[in-house]
Computed example of a mutant assay.
Amino acid sequence: MANLRVKLLANPPATTADPAIGVRRLVGLLCALTFGLMALGSLTRVMGAGLSCPDWPLCYGQVLPHLDPYIFLEWFHRQVAQLVGLLTVGLCALVWWQRRRLPGWLVPLAALALALVLVQGILGALTVTQYLRFDIVTAHLGTAMLYFATLLVALTLLTPAPAIRSQSRFLPWVASAGALIVYAQIILGGLVASQWALHQCLAGSLLCNVMNNHLVGVVPATLATLASIGFAWKPLRPLALALLGLLLAQIGLGVATFWLQLSVPALTVAHLAIGAALLGSLVVLAVLSLRERYRSV
């Protein structure tokens, strides 16, 4: 008996792994893939490769067509999108299978992610079949941002974090409002990009109202982000500093892309990527502060 007790102490029985860890890793992978996919989609658009594959879901009727640089961009964008869709289905299956051992909020959140990725797939097909119609392209971008935000909500809630001290009771609402305003500004930017409003306005005074609305939208988006930074400065200074850096980078990229009239694709892609990172950071800030508020209650 004594020998058995020593063996048990030296080699304790294996415990069942926490399913939340596997779910968190999968959600983190999806966040990274989605962020890269949005940047890849922006590059495809600014390079004029959006209709390089004129049919859908195949490309020139083939799974693997002849790939020149433009066809490759569009084809590769589709492959990554399909991977994201399949992984989202896998995420929902995993969450449903382990639902009794996972937080109750995770099932509806995974279902929302699946619904968004299905809508995104339909919009992706329509962008091709409807020849890059501006409203569909903008909806495609907006749905991608909502999907990205949904994943970030799940990832933040699944990640253990220490208690936040000295948090203002206004921080959750300021950060949430900031995320909504920045999201609206991204949609305005999508309208500008999908209609090539900057080029048309500079060339012939067409669509200048679309361009001007986006320029005016910089003001509330900046003020909302600065307010979030101010309220988060003491309790969550690293995140507040990250937000400040992203805001300054986004303003600088916006000025550069406007001044250069979208002639440098890398700047345009970076502008969208930093905008997505800014939105994501505000979402994370809102979720962290809301979680702390309800934890204290």
Rank of each mutant, 00 (worst) to 15 (best):
L9K: 11
C31Q: 10
Y183A: 15
A139L: 13
F148L: 15
L30C: 08
C59G: 10
A273D: 12
Q185M: 14
L26N: 11
L58M: 04
E292K: 03
L123I: 00
I21Y: 12
V137C: 03
A113K: 04
V117S: 08
C31H: 03
V287T: 14
L155A: 15
L282T: 01
E74K: 13
V182E: 12
Y147Q: 11
V269W: 04
W96T: 09
A277G: 08
I251Y: 06
D135M: 02
I187N: 01
P65H: 01
T222N: 01
T150C: 14
H66K: 12
A224M: 07
S263G: 15
I251Q: 03
R291Y: 08
T88R: 05
V210E: 08
A242C: 12
Q130V: 06
A256H: 06
L198K: 05
G61P: 02
L241I: 13
S205C: 04
L272Q: 15
R169P: 07
S205I: 01
M38Y: 00
V192M: 10
A161M: 09
G142Q: 14
S194D: 09
V128W: 00
A276S: 15
R45P: 11
L83G: 08
G254M: 15
G28A: 09
A277H: 03
P238A: 04
A39E: 02
A224T: 07
M47C: 06
V269P: 05
H77F: 00
A154Y: 09
S263L: 06
R165T: 13
R133L: 13
L236A: 12
Q195C: 01
